[in-house]
Design a protein around this nucleic acid. Structure first.
Length: 458
DNA sequence: TCTGGGGTCCTAGGACCC
DNA sequence: TCTGGGGTCCTAGGACCC
């Protein structure tokens, strides 16, 4: 917690529904529900007109229809939402370099990094009013609710206090007075399960929580959660605003309108999902070692199975083969309502098989593999070297100029390049004799660090 | 015909290594 | 023959968030 109100939280009001109303005037002033429109869909966002009828996020669309039959039910246009979101984030970033998006419609802004003359309440309030006006201007009239406080927690609570289209600044020193009467569920991380456990212990408000010892909370909720809750109950929150967060996993899942019973169909659906995961991994320059499938049975019990391979992959064929194999071990009698595939254990580099022995559905637009094959050193600037290792042999990294080659196993080498054209990133589809090809430089300042991966092969 | 999709973080147990 | 801990990795499940 800071001694000034310098953390801002901005939340776009009923965002998806508001974009629809903006783009289709006939929907303005009317109830609009955006979400899954299929038999098993749920509400993503309800306009304020629809909320009057009790329609809420995460409610099943069926229930929303029964509560508000005359609403417009829309499945959503994510491209439009992303565009609007990017416009808003650009406005925020023009105010401070420290902007942390939480989703398409929400972000924290660190005003301490905004270069303001001071961080007095009046000053930050003016900044917020200006931001809200700019948001409306660049998005064609979308409104946002803003909260400002001495921490993320307080800013987020504050932005909720005067929705929609509101602005609340919590002056430093006023945090506990604000929180004490509130229900424990205002604390981030306190969901239905935690609320129920606390309720059984007679704890309902933040004030109730405040007088419980940390030890007691840790006993009740576990180390991490108990400790975190104890801090937040005392309004102690030093979490920084972090602009970039590393992706940890990529997944695709789907719920089907009728339960699946045909295993061949399930395998085909997993394969299609694996392809989409692979596409997204490649688009982000990522690859991962752990493939996980998720299976939700007819009775809503959810099962996951994972398997981890020796080196990261972004190949649809590898991901789908592992996914389908994981499914084989599962009993799905009774039917499956959801299937999903995910990849985690991500690295931002890729292992190539130089000898072309894998079934890979990657279409190499250039033929980096072939050029590196058989020890053929490639090219200008890159000077790639090929090594062949015997099974079980220790593999060490080999420095090549300012770049690196890694490898493990027989005949497999991992190469990471960067090009003048694309900047850092995997460039597997580039021809090896492309003059733009430069060896990738390790990111550590002294150039001596190699990824952890290496340790595993020794 | 209750209960989405994309994520993050935590826990607990077992394997394995030193 | 018995008896350790500590650390890391992997797996499965659960809570939570938007």
């Amino acid at each position: 917690m800071r001694n000034v109100a310098s953390v801002l939280h901005l939340d776009l009001d009923a965002f998806f529904a508001a974009v629809e109303q903006r783009d289709k005037p006939s929907l303005r002033g009317k109830p609009v529900v955006v979400g899954g429109v299929g038999g098993r869909g749920v509400v993503s966002t309800a306009s304020y007109e629809a909320r009057k009828y009790g329609v809420r996020s995460a409610m099943s669309t069926r229930e929303a229809r029964s509560r508000c039959p005359h609403a417009a039910f829309l499945s959503g246009r994510f491209h439009a939402y992303r565009t609007a979101s990017e416009q808003v984030m650009a406005v925020l970033r023009a105010t401070s370099p420290l902007v942390e998006p939480l989703s398409l419609d929400e972000a924290f802004v660190d005003l301490a990094a905004a270069g303001l003359p001071d961080l007095e309440v009046d000053t930050v309030r003016h900044v917020a009013e200006r931001l809200r006006a700019q948001v409306a201007e660049v998005t064609g009239g979308l409104t946002a609710s803003v909260g400002i406080g001495s921490s993320k927690f307080i800013a987020k609570v504050a932005s909720d206090l005067d929705k929609p289209d509101g602005l609340v600044v919590v002056p430093p020193g006023g945090e506990l007075d604000l929180l004490r009467p509130m229900h424990v569920s205002v604390i981030p991380g306190v969901g239905p399960a935690t609320t129920e456990r606390l309720r059984r212990a007679g704890i309902h408000t933040v004030a109730d929580l405040e007088v419980i010892s940390e030890d007691e909370l840790v006993r009740m909720l576990g180390a991490a959660h108990g400790h975190g809750l104890h801090l937040l109950a005392h309004a102690e929150d030093d979490r920084p605003v972090v602009p970039e967060r590393e992706t940890k996993s990529v997944s695709v899942e789907g719920t089907y309108d009728t339960d699946l019973t045909d295993r061949r169909l399930m395998a085909a659906l997993l394969t299609r999902q694996a392809r989409r995961v692979a596409e997204r991994l490649r688009a982000s320059g990522l690859a991962g070692r752990t493939v996980t499938i998720k299976v939700r049975l007819h009775d809503f019990t959810t099962i996951s199975r994972s398997s981890t391979i020796g080196s990261p992959t972004d190949a649809a064929s590898t991901i789908s083969r592992l996914a389908v194999a994981l499914l084989q071990d599962l009993d799905t009698t009774g039917g499956v309502r959801l299937l999903g595939v995910g990849v985690s254990g991500l690295a931002d580099w890729i292992q190539e098989d130089l000898f072309g022995t894998t079934e890979d559905d990657v279409e190499p637009e250039g033929d980096l593999d072939a050029d590196l094959d058989a020890g053929a050193p490639s090219t200008a600037g890159a000077k790639a070297t090929t090594h062949t290792w015997a099974p079980g042999m220790d593999v060490e990294h080999a420095e090549m100029g300012r770049g690196w080659v890694w490898g493990s196993g027989r005949g497999v080498v991992t190469v990471r390049f960067e090009t003048a054209a694309t900047g850092p990133g995997p460039v597997r589809s580039l021809k090896a004799d492309d003059p733009a090809l430069q060896p990738w430089r390790p990111e550590s300042p002294d150039g001596s660090t190699v990824p952890d991966m290496h340790e595993r092969h020794r």
